[in-house]
Design a protein around this nucleic acid. Structure first.
Lengths: 283, 283
DNA sequence: CGGTTTTTTGACGATGTTCAACTCTTGTGG
DNA sequence: CCACAAGAGTTGAACATCGTCAAAAAACCG
């Protein structure tokens, strides 16, 4: 209800983010671009080395934007799918009077656009939130892969179903939780997802949104976001300086948010975070 | 945030509704049970008579609950899909402290549960909101049909995509619109969807939820729903007596809600409603 | 009818918004 | 390197929206 969609169509915006500078997450070797997709899908299905390679090729063989640009990504109606490699983006919708609702957040590893069938998305659009690199993969390129590799097909289908599950969880979040709980919940979700692609260190990660964008994602005003974040800080749950988010007390944050990560289907990640939370009791 | 999930698991509830008593909608012949599914999917793809028959057989050949019972429908994790024939149902999720959010409303013609792949839905559940009749179709039964009838396959896929689109629209609705706008928007959506399956007469339909359930669907309190509905009444937009909803001024309702039915992909319906709105300027 | 659910009402309080100004940071260009 | 501009974060005060509690009235069901 605040920030007007200034970047609705395309004008670039000064890049600020280092989200995506993945040298070596605490949990895996440095990645090839396609490795990111393999890692993401590996959360849903065990992939063989060959299958990983197929995915890697898929990404390598397709056009890739240069690093760190601000783009206005095409929406799902187009003939291609965007794989986020670095940076973050969102899908949003604006009401006639300018209010904007962010519908989906995309972080590295996320596919924005459905791989197989897709519909005209109407008045929904996609823009980057930070400087970003994306691989643009024609939808057709998925067809032979899906036909020859049923496990990849299944993983892609699951990926889409999980994305839906996230939407349903957002409905719960916005519909039922207070501002305080909502923010806590989004932080939990983001941390889990970032961790799944190796973009966290300990209990620290980069928050891929400004407070104004948080407001548009959570259905709150930017001012209220600010005040509530301060509340979270003074309650000792998080430390947020600039874009750097550190979770100081993960159990407390999760319980304040009534967060249950089940819907993300990232169970290994959940376990890893739990141990991290134990080993970094404070910082 | 009000009504606790009294029917969370199964206990039946006195049937009240006549939703689904479709003799002959103003827009089509009396239907066979499967005709309802054909009509629904026909919104997305033109179906041949043969394809309609296939769908009809699919429904006829599979177990069907007797009319007018209250059921606790299994959620999508199960091996079957529920086709609503009469009555209404919803998918919901409850937070640990009892707040409930309704995620999806099902009306006749809706499939509750994905036809092809599906995931464990976690802590989401489905219950009927009124007495209902559903056809329980094993997921496997779809496989041969999808393989032999690509147009049906496409229609089913579209159906799923539209359902997702509805979820995204609900996020916008709950996140950005005021209570007044939210209710108006849901009324518009429901009227369109009911009209698509022939469950409206002129500008009248049966509202398949109580005010308390509306509250849980829209993220408002039941009291606020009540007051806001009164506002809608006194503004001359609707007439709501019991479960009977009459839309008195469709253009005004739509514009108050900033409703754009595009996301429902029911364009023929939208046109039909428009003419109805002209021919029944008042009642 | 008699009990139950649903709708309605009132008073009060909490949560969240608006507007406007100010500060801080960050990136840019001189 | 510094000055500057622009975006982002922060603050206060007034206000609107919406929730809670409690109780009554109305509608509905068997």
């Amino acid at each position: 209800m605040d920030t007007l969609p200034r970047y609705a169509v395309s004008p670039p915006r000064p890049g600020t983010s280092a989200l995506g500078a993945r040298r070596a997450g605490p949990d895996g070797p440095p990645e090839t671009p396609g490795g990111l997709l393999a890692r993401k899908l590996g959360n849903f299905v065990d992939l063989s080395d060959q299958e990983r390679e197929v995915l890697d090729d898929l990404v390598r063989q397709n056009r890739q934007y240069g690093p760190r640009e601000h783009l206005s990504l095409e929406n799902g109606h187009s003939r291609s799918v965007n794989l986020m490699l670095e940076g973050s983006a969102c899908r949003y919708k604006i009401l006639p009077d300018g209010r904007r609702q962010i519908l989906t957040l995309f972080i590295p590893g996320d596919l924005c656009g459905r791989c197989l069938p897709d519909l005209d998305l109407g008045d929904e659009s996609v823009v980057t939130l930070t400087a970003a690199t994306v691989a643009v993969i024609p939808r057709q390129a998925f067809v032979p892969i899906v036909e020859s590799y049923p496990r990849i097909a299944r993983a892609l289908a699951w990926n889409a179903l999980v994305e839906e599950g996230v939407h349903r969880e957002w409905i719960v979040n916005i519909g039922q939780r207070t501002g305080y709980e909502r923010i806590a919940h989004l932080f939990c979700e983001l941390f889990h997802r970032l961790s799944a692609v190796g973009l966290t260190q300990g209990l620290r990660c980069e928050l891929p949104l400004t407070q104004g964008e948080l407001a548009d994602a959570l259905g709150l005003s930017a001012v209220h976001i600010n005040r509530t974040v301060q509340q979270l800080r003074s309650d000792g749950l998080i430390c947020l300086r600039g874009r750097e988010l550190t979770i100081l007390d993960f159990p407390a944050l999760q319980s304040a948010a009534m967060f249950d990560g089940q819907y993300l289907h990232l169970s290994q990640v959940a376990r890893r975070i739990e141990t991290a939370a134990r080993s970094y009791p404070d910082l």
